[in-house]
């Protein structure tokens, strides 16, 4: 089953950790600077980066589910 990336944008504080860690999966919205997912079902090669993003997000607003 494909793993899906979801975010709770209302919790985001725009620290940019995820964008730095997994730039192919996350971006920051131009207007607010908050997280947006650009690839919600990233390829295997991005999974480690996404896991790192989950761990380093200061407000734990990123989820990576089976």
């Amino acid at each position: 089953m494909t793993r899906r990336v979801t975010v709770e944008q209302e919790k985001c504080v725009g620290s940019g950790q995820c964008v730095m860690t997994a730039p192919k999966v996350f971006a920051q919205d131009d207007k607010l600077g908050l997280v947006v997912v650009i690839d919600s079902t990233p390829p295997e090669s991005e999974h480690d980066a996404v896991r790192d993003a989950v761990l380093t997000c200061p407000v734990q607003c990123i989820h990576f589910d089976e």
Partner: peptide, 9 residues
């Protein structure tokens, strides 16, 4: 939030 957009990557 008034400043986040100023400091995005």
């Amino acid at each position: 939030r008034m400043l986040t957009a100023e400091f995005v990557y």
